[in-house]
Design a protein around this nucleic acid. Structure first.
Lengths: 345, 345
DNA sequence: ATGAAAGCGCTAACAG
DNA sequence: CTGTTAGCGCTTTCAT
């Protein structure tokens, strides 16, 4: 037996100890050469790097994270993603910002079933992420408590709340709905309707804001909650299509519709088209989200713009600031929204 | 000093040792009571569970995974997700199937830049995921080698390959394009075009398959590669809209267009609509993907259906089988595709 | 059915 | 600039 101690490590795995041995240094020096090059002479730095390369070394972040308490993991809890989901750009922007800083994002699917959501939260905390991002706010009191107790930086997004768990980056859906009602009223529209989704609390809030403001302005509002099957797809183009058809049979004299999302608006547009109703002359159609396709519709969609990319980036920087010990207060940021006037209303 | 050994653990963290102490058992018994209840008497089982609950214990999967070599993590490497991305349903289905089995999915963004992609692969292997799912095949030889060397089960998806890294669940994009050409030919269309994307290799393959088959059938094909800005959005509705406009100025007599994706087709539909071109009478428009909105377009989109949900589920079950020591061979599964005839062509 | 010991692979803390 | 020691929190192995 010579000095090459036979570690009982798993076969086929090359560890930092192997690299260190190859480079003729201690493991900690190898660690430093790889992760903190400044602490090590240029010469050993290069020897270690060469050794790592030739051995095909890939660090084990599970081990490193355990010791250093830095998992470099971020959890993102979002409702099920669909083709028209309004969250995708924000998630995309966030994932990118985090990746640049060496973090990776794990995705968990939120559920309207509270017990399931609580289980998800436990599963997520078990990973010891350095930040948790919620698309939407969290209703479950048990979940909120558990998250707060975890001490992990939390950001709720895409909504407002009187009592955020920790940080929050969002805007008011009620205000957005109300703004659309005022916008249509100013345009001289008289008989509004809304197509929303029965299981998306934010879409419901937008609808309610719209309805309340429309009533206050003396416009009536035939609303329409489109039931979705299960909890898979909170808003789909087909809902807009069928929703408008249904609305028109009951209220043939509608002159404007506010849709829960841009995809829903696309569906309403298709239905109007199919029925030979001219948009915006006979019927104004307003979407929500200013998705990238809004501008490409015919006519281009008038919609509520929300800065999804900005939200994603801000969320990332807020969490990273907190991780670095800055920005300790938490609190809410209202990102606002604006109405983008295009051709549809 | 009494027998409560003061572990030097991080303050505010409740560990398995705390739970064990509370329940008056050893840590390993506590571990078993929580993760392997059968090995423990019902009585201690309940004592431990009660202790865990009252202490607010959440296991540390980093630590467990380190020792057991079971990270319960799956990595999914996908091109940037956009509103119209064709991968979303598959990712969604896969995430759900994995979550049910106690795995969580981490998302990494693929890039057309090879060096960046290789770095992503290292970052991902560093997490020791139990499976890696690639949306698309991997081109980089260095990356392929590194993945193979990792010993981690890999599934490439949404494409075919002569030499998959390991497992593969996909279909032939060339065949799909060719099938569309034959379909249109059989319908008596004579002057075809294709709108594809300049930076999505699979969209290019579909376009090429279409062009080659169209030529073989004696139809000419004015193609159109829509350049995208950066690598953010491989296919957007606006590309369909602008692409068709451009094509029509050069070839006003087109009678059919094959679009790279359904969103692109939606854009082409909008443009046809804007120009007063009747679909499908004057112009047939064929999409790809059979996204959930295809059926809601006006006219409903004729498109190539690919079983995204099935792909996602199969991928999950293949990886989990491999993890359990079954299904050791690897190899390719061709999921095929079919053309769904609707109103647009 | 339960426990003691050992150690997964790495890095913080303290030397030198 | 480099090394030694001691764990992170859990689970495997081998006893009992």
């Amino acid at each position: 037996m010579n000095d090459l101690k036979t570690t009982t490590k798993r076969p086929g795995t090359v560890t930092l100890a192997d690299v260190a041995r190859l480079a003729g240094v201690s493991t900690i020096t190898a660690s430093r050469a790889l992760n903190n090059p400044k602490m090590v002479s240029v010469e050993t730095q290069e020897r270690v790097k060469a050794a790592a390369l030739s051995a095909g070394y890939v660090p084990n972040l599970l081990a490193g994270g355990l010791k250093s308490n830095r998992s470099r993991l971020i959890a993102c809890l979002s409702p099920a993603l669909t083709a028209g989901s309004i969250f995708i750009v924000a998630i995309q922007a966030m994932t990118e910002a985090f990746a640049e800083a060496g973090y990776q994002v794990i995705i968990g699917q939120r559920s309207f079933d509270q017990a399931r959501e609580d289980r998800l939260i436990d599963a997520v905390i078990a990973r010891r992420p350095e930040g948790i991002v919620l698309m939407g706010v969290l209703e479950s009191e048990a979940g909120r408590h558990r998250l707060r107790a975890s001490g992990i930086p939390i950001v709720e997004t895409w909504d407002m709340s009187d009592s955020p768990i920790d940080m929050l980056v969002g805007f008011s859906h009620i205000d957005a709905g109300a703004a659309v009602a005022r916008y249509l009223h100013d345009k001289g529209r008289k008989r509004p309707a809304v197509i929303t989704s029965s299981n998306d609390p934010r879409a419901i809030a937008r609808g309610q804001g719209f309805i309340d403001a429309a009533s206050a302005l003396g416009m009536g509002t035939p609303s329409m909650n489109v039931p979705t099957h299960g909890f898979i797809s909170p808003s789909k183009m087909i809902h807009g299509r069928e929703g408008l058809r249904e609305l028109l049979t009951q209220h043939p004299d509608l002159d404007c519709v506010f849709c829960a999302t841009d995809v829903v608006a696309l569906g309403a547009l298709a239905e109007a088209n199919a029925q030979g109703i001219s948009v915006p002359e006979q019927l104004a159609i307003i979407g929500f989200g200013d998705s990238d396709f809004a501008v490409a519709a015919n006519p281009a969609l008038t919609t509520v713009r929300v800065e999804g990319v900005e939200i994603g980036r801000l969320v990332a920087s807020q969490i990273m600031a907190r991780v670095e010990g800055k920005n300790l207060e938490g609190g809410a940021v209202d990102m606002g929204f604006c109405i983008v006037e295009r051709g549809s209303g």
